[in-house]
Simulated scan of single mutants.
Amino acid sequence: MTSDWPRVQLHVVTGKGGTGKSTVAAALALGLASHGNNVLLCEVEGRQGVARMFDVDPLPYAETRIATGLRWSEDGGHHPPGSVYALHIDAEQALLEYLRMYYKLGPAGRALDRFGVVEFATTVAPGVRDVLLTGKVFEAVQRNSRNRGARQYDAVVLDAPPTGRITSFLNVSESVAGLAKVGPIKHQADTMMTLFRSPRTAVHLVTLLEEMPVQETADGIAELHAARLPVGGVIINQVRPRDLPDDALEAARTGRLDAATVADDLKRAGIEGGNGFVDTLLEEAKEYAERRALEDRQREALAHLAVPTYELERLAAGVDMGGLYELAADLKEQGLA
């Protein structure tokens, strides 16, 4: 089984709030960390969501090993898993590291922090903040001699800001255009764009089969294309199992299920319902069928976007470590990881 994205080193995961993009990013990192690959999972929103998902202490500004990758066997062979490392990227710490690496400002950089210069730079100029956050991700993908002894990764997964902000977040060259026409910040932004716009990057969008997330996904893809940023796949999250065949769904939706037949079936199964029990079941079946019809329409809308799609079933018991590995295996089987 091969990946749909063999050339991609940076997987950016975005999505409307509430669609589960952080969960998908974590599962993708576990899936990519099979076959001995080491993967870095980065977060930039300051929520420490990765630490909570993997049940570890809050992450420092340091690459920390948090999990063993997905164990995956194919063709009868055994392939030892790699490791997932995580990094909580903080703009202020990223600026200090930037000053240390590029300007050799060690103690002097910390002195700037004490005087509030770092906070000024990252608050007054939001474009600079995005350059610093994405700059650390860029450095993790594009490791060079400036960061001696740093760990090399086979892939980097970025748990990115929501869909509505992803284009401006990645399009850092445009973000700093009004701040710096020349100089190191402009040069850094332009250099990062060579990676973000290359086949080595893919921006994956997470959605639910609901109207607003699907519309935001469509808008996000259009914005990414306009900014010449590479669109990856669409991950449809929390898909409900299809418990009824199409003809039964249509009968339930249109109110054509026969109450007497349902009552007889229940009786044969040993279930005795009281007054109104069958009517309640029929009403719930109708609501379920209407929901499935809505989901089918949204799935058709996603198909028109001409983007590869992947589906993850809703985990009835919620998402724990076992659930993350289950989702990782699903992504691997479908070719995303």
Results as ranks from 00 to 15, higher is better:
residue 75 D to F: 04
residue 76 G to M: 11
residue 78 H to Q: 09
residue 79 H to N: 13
residue 82 G to F: 01
residue 83 S to M: 12
residue 83 S to G: 10
residue 84 V to W: 02
residue 86 A to P: 14
residue 87 L to N: 01
residue 88 H to S: 06
residue 88 H to N: 10
residue 89 I to Y: 02
residue 91 A to C: 13
residue 92 E to Q: 15
residue 92 E to R: 11
residue 92 E to T: 07
residue 94 A to M: 07
residue 94 A to T: 06
residue 95 L to N: 02
residue 95 L to F: 10
residue 96 L to E: 02
residue 96 L to V: 07
residue 97 E to V: 03
residue 101 M to E: 09
residue 101 M to Q: 13
residue 103 Y to E: 12
residue 104 K to D: 15
residue 106 G to Q: 09
residue 108 A to S: 15
residue 108 A to G: 15
residue 108 A to V: 06
residue 109 G to V: 01
residue 110 R to D: 10
residue 110 R to G: 03
residue 113 D to H: 14
residue 114 R to T: 12
residue 115 F to Y: 08
residue 116 G to V: 00
residue 116 G to I: 03
residue 116 G to E: 04
residue 118 V to R: 00
residue 120 F to V: 03
residue 121 A to Y: 04
residue 128 V to D: 03
residue 128 V to N: 02
residue 128 V to W: 11
residue 128 V to G: 00
residue 134 T to P: 09
residue 134 T to N: 13
residue 137 V to M: 04
residue 138 F to E: 04
residue 141 V to G: 05
residue 141 V to D: 09
residue 141 V to E: 10
residue 141 V to N: 10
residue 143 R to G: 08
residue 145 S to H: 14
residue 145 S to C: 07
residue 145 S to I: 05
residue 146 R to E: 11
residue 146 R to K: 15
residue 147 N to D: 12
residue 148 R to P: 15
residue 151 R to T: 05
residue 152 Q to G: 06
residue 154 D to S: 13
residue 155 A to N: 03
residue 155 A to Y: 02
residue 156 V to N: 08
residue 156 V to S: 10
residue 157 V to T: 13
residue 157 V to K: 04
residue 157 V to W: 11
residue 158 L to S: 01
residue 162 P to A: 05
residue 163 T to I: 09
residue 163 T to G: 04
residue 166 I to P: 12
residue 166 I to L: 15
residue 167 T to P: 08
residue 167 T to D: 10
residue 167 T to N: 14
residue 169 F to P: 01
residue 169 F to Y: 06
residue 170 L to S: 04
residue 170 L to W: 07
residue 171 N to Q: 08
residue 172 V to L: 05
residue 175 S to R: 15
residue 184 P to F: 10
residue 185 I to Y: 15
residue 185 I to F: 15
residue 186 K to P: 09
residue 186 K to L: 06
residue 187 H to S: 13
residue 187 H to I: 08
residue 187 H to Y: 08
residue 188 Q to D: 15
residue 188 Q to M: 15
residue 191 T to H: 12
residue 193 M to C: 09
residue 196 F to V: 11
residue 199 P to V: 04
residue 201 T to V: 09
residue 202 A to Y: 03
residue 203 V to Q: 00
residue 206 V to W: 01
residue 206 V to G: 00
